Computed example of a mutant assay.
Amino acid sequence: MKAEFLKGLGLEQDVVDKIMAENGKDVAAEQAKTTKAEGERDNYKDQLATATESLEKFKDVDPAAMQSEIENLNKQLKDKDEEYAAKEADRIFSDTVKEAIKSAGGRNEKAVMAMLDMEALKASKNQSEDIKKALETVKESDAYLFGSDEPFMNAVGATGGSADVGGDNLSAIRAAMGLPTNK
């Protein structure tokens, strides 16, 4: 609305100014709404451009191939978990056998383990009992792999007699060596 239009209607200048001020408020409010809507529109345009650009990166991607790759990676992960579990089970079994060998008095763990049927023991349902039985069998057939329970018959210390051979120890040592005593 223009001020000349209102003056042409025969309104006084004071009334025209008031009408124009009120109209200006309405126009300013509408301009603010328009500016806000244009800002939102520009924001949506930027988001659309960014999304379109991101989608362009995936333009040549085959979803079926990607799904196949995901399934392949999941299978590899499962295989690694199973491999780790098998290695851990082997380690625990090996430690159990070594401990049993040690408690049975085995001198060399590797040598005794070579005499055992490890696969049969590993597949056994009652491993601890079967390991003990297998160790007893090896102990009977190859006793040299195990420590002896018999006491040593070799004397290490003095076997009797007196330690003092008369006088000082130096003369006793000289006499044992066949040398004349030193006076």
Rank of each mutant, 00 (worst) to 15 (best):
residue 74 N to F: 02
residue 174 R to A: 15
residue 179 L to N: 08
residue 29 A to C: 06
residue 28 A to H: 11
residue 155 A to F: 01
residue 124 S to E: 03
residue 75 K to A: 09
residue 97 V to W: 09
residue 183 K to D: 15
residue 81 D to M: 15
residue 110 K to M: 06
residue 7 K to G: 06
residue 78 K to N: 04
residue 137 T to G: 05
residue 123 A to D: 05
residue 68 S to R: 12
residue 171 S to E: 13
residue 93 F to A: 07
residue 2 K to D: 07
residue 117 D to S: 10
residue 161 G to P: 14
residue 23 N to H: 15
residue 64 A to K: 09
residue 155 A to M: 02
residue 46 D to F: 15
residue 143 A to E: 07
residue 128 S to N: 00
residue 4 E to I: 01
residue 23 N to D: 14
residue 127 Q to R: 10
residue 133 K to L: 10
residue 63 P to F: 10
residue 169 N to A: 10
residue 103 S to Q: 04
residue 153 M to R: 03
residue 109 E to T: 09
residue 62 D to C: 08
residue 168 D to P: 03
residue 174 R to G: 10
residue 155 A to K: 05
residue 96 T to L: 09
residue 98 K to R: 12
residue 67 Q to W: 00
residue 173 I to R: 11
residue 12 E to A: 08
residue 101 I to P: 00
residue 64 A to Y: 12
residue 171 S to P: 04
residue 73 L to V: 09
residue 129 E to W: 01
residue 19 I to Y: 02
residue 50 T to C: 14
residue 136 E to F: 06
residue 54 S to A: 15
residue 45 K to S: 09
residue 136 E to S: 08
residue 132 K to G: 01
residue 123 A to L: 05
residue 109 E to D: 02
residue 47 Q to G: 14
residue 151 P to M: 12
residue 35 T to K: 06
residue 16 V to N: 07
residue 34 T to H: 13
residue 106 G to S: 04
residue 69 E to T: 03
residue 183 K to M: 13
residue 32 A to W: 04
residue 171 S to H: 10
residue 127 Q to N: 08
residue 41 R to P: 07
residue 115 M to I: 03
residue 103 S to F: 00
residue 148 S to L: 14
residue 12 E to N: 07
residue 152 F to C: 13
residue 107 R to N: 00
residue 44 Y to N: 10
residue 40 E to Y: 09
residue 86 A to Y: 14
residue 21 A to F: 10
residue 23 N to K: 11
residue 140 E to D: 10
residue 33 K to F: 09
residue 141 S to P: 11
residue 118 M to A: 03
residue 135 L to W: 00
residue 57 K to L: 10
residue 57 K to Q: 09
residue 180 P to H: 13
residue 82 E to D: 13
residue 44 Y to S: 08
residue 36 K to H: 03
residue 37 A to D: 01
residue 140 E to I: 09
residue 141 S to D: 07
residue 84 Y to V: 15
residue 65 A to V: 07
residue 83 E to F: 15
residue 17 D to K: 02
residue 104 A to I: 06
residue 35 T to F: 02
residue 131 I to M: 11
residue 97 V to T: 08
residue 62 D to S: 10
residue 68 S to M: 04
residue 115 M to C: 09
residue 156 V to M: 08
residue 123 A to K: 10
residue 149 D to M: 05
residue 10 G to W: 06
residue 156 V to Y: 03
residue 162 S to G: 01
residue 57 K to I: 08
residue 92 I to W: 06
residue 82 E to G: 12
residue 136 E to R: 03
residue 56 E to L: 10
residue 39 G to L: 14
residue 140 E to L: 09
residue 49 A to S: 13
